[in-house]
């Protein structure tokens, strides 16, 4: 019943036997012990489980690990030394963009994608792009301000 998958996780080649019904988030958390990827709803709405797959944010709770064969997956744990993520972390802490920390990994991964993909996003666009990531603590105020700040600061650097 189990199937073999080969994929790259945080730069490592991983080969594993998985039950087809195991979703990617459980595979990352339970098999790979990468518990920074959180489960908030397991039906694709809350965004807490967002990871990067082949360069794009995806929901790891509604993608089955077996179907991710051959992909390149990056979880929050892989961004310790990422320059853009470091910038975001700085802004998130200064703007108080997190409280309990549970939605934060998914939120940061989505925020990083917004900044990389939409360097000219204004506040309403940021909010729209974030609408698939739920936070129950912050009211999004600090999160949106942090993303705006990083976008503005990067623009400033780029224009120098």
């Amino acid at each position: 019943m189990k199937k073999t998958v080969n994929l790259t996780i945080n730069g490592r080649s991983v080969t594993a036997e998985v039950e087809p019904r195991t979703h990617l988030a459980d595979f990352l958390r339970d098999d790979q012990r990468l518990t920074g990827t959180h489960l908030g709803c397991e039906h694709g709405v809350c965004g807490a489980c967002t990871v990067i797959m082949d360069g794009e944010p995806v929901r790891s709770c509604i993608n089955f690990a077996v179907a991710c064969d051959g992909t390149d997956v990056r979880t929050i744990e892989d961004f310790d030394d990422d320059e853009l993520m470091a910038h975001l972390r700085q802004a998130f802490t200064e703007e108080h963009g997190l409280q309990c920390g549970y939605c934060t990994p998914g939120m940061l991964i989505m925020a990083r994608d917004i900044i990389a993909r939409l360097p000219d996003a204004d506040e309403s666009r940021i909010r729209l792009e974030l609408s698939g990531n739920l936070c129950r603590c912050t009211g999004y105020v600090g999160i949106v301000r942090a993303i705006r700040r990083v976008l503005a600061e990067r623009k400033e650097v780029a224009s120098v």
């Binding site: 797959m53 944010p57 995806v58 929901r59 609408s131 698939g132 990531n133």
Partner: peptide, 9 residues
């Protein structure tokens, strides 16, 4: 449609 993370897949 839905959210970016969903649209990617």
């Amino acid at each position: 449609i839905a959210y970016r993370g969903v649209r990617n897949r």
